[in-house]
Amino acid sequence: MADAARARRVADRIHETVARLLQGRIKDPRLGFVTVTDVRVTGDLQQATVFYTVYGSDEDRRDSAAALRSATGLIRSEVGKALGIRLTPSLTFQLDALPTQARTFEDALAQARAKDEEIARSSAGATYAGEADPYKHEDRDEERADTDEDRGDRREGAEDTGQDRDAR
């Protein structure tokens, strides 16, 4: 097993080599506007997955995938020459789903923003159902304590009156 740093260097070299080949050497008319986004190499450096995106329609994506499959042998041999390691990794091309996921997230965020704006518009002239401030405050607690003490004085006075009756 190679260490993670070596695997990353090999992945970077594969990324550069594949991008250079797609830019200049591969002349397949089916190949659209392809961008290599990432390369991941297994720990034993035996397999590499090349992630790519294609600008265009679904048909352009299918055509580009077919062109990459047909050019895999040429690309692998060039990668082997560029790497200079004993075993050249086998290459797998995978359409990168990240742009599609990002678009989905952006659409969801736009819907949330629209919903928030709708709620803000509907609550613009609204008033509270109860008090404007439903929370307890210290000044109110002090007033309540004062009235509780007054009630306590009244109770003590009632008890005294009751004691006086018992003495009679």
Rank of each mutant, 00 (worst) to 15 (best):
Asp166Asn: 13
Ser123Trp: 14
Thr100Asn: 02
Asp58Leu: 00
Asp12Glu: 10
Glu16Phe: 02
Ile26Lys: 08
Arg168Thr: 15
Ile119Glu: 11
Ala67Trp: 10
Gly130Lys: 00
Gln46Thr: 07
Arg76Val: 08
Arg62Tyr: 01
Asp116Ala: 03
Leu87Trp: 13
Leu87Cys: 06
Asp150Gln: 09
Ala124Ser: 12
Arg140Phe: 09
Ala120Leu: 05
His15Arg: 14
Arg62Ile: 00
Val54His: 00
Ser64Ile: 10
Arg103Val: 12
Pro134Cys: 04
Gln111Phe: 06
Arg8Pro: 02
Arg168Tyr: 15
Thr37Ser: 02
Arg69Val: 07
Gln46Val: 07
Ala65Asn: 09
Val10Gly: 15
Gln47Met: 10
Val50His: 15
Gln163Tyr: 14
Pro134Glu: 08
Val79Asp: 02
Thr17Pro: 04
Ala167Asn: 15
Ala120Pro: 06
Leu109Arg: 13
Asp58Arg: 00
Asp141Cys: 02
Ala132Met: 05
Ser57Gly: 05
Leu98His: 01
Ser90Gly: 09
Arg69Lys: 14
Glu78Cys: 00
Arg62Phe: 00
Ala158Trp: 13
Gly43His: 03
Met1Ser: 10
Lys81Cys: 07
Val39Trp: 10
Ala112Asp: 02
Glu149Val: 15
Gln163Ser: 10
Thr35Met: 03
Asp28Trp: 07
Asp146His: 13
Arg113Glu: 07
Pro29Met: 04
Ala97Trp: 00
Thr88Ile: 09
Thr161Ser: 15
Glu117Val: 08
Arg103Met: 11
Asp148Thr: 08
Thr37Gln: 02
Gln46Tyr: 05
Gly84Arg: 12
Ser77Gly: 02
Leu83Asn: 14
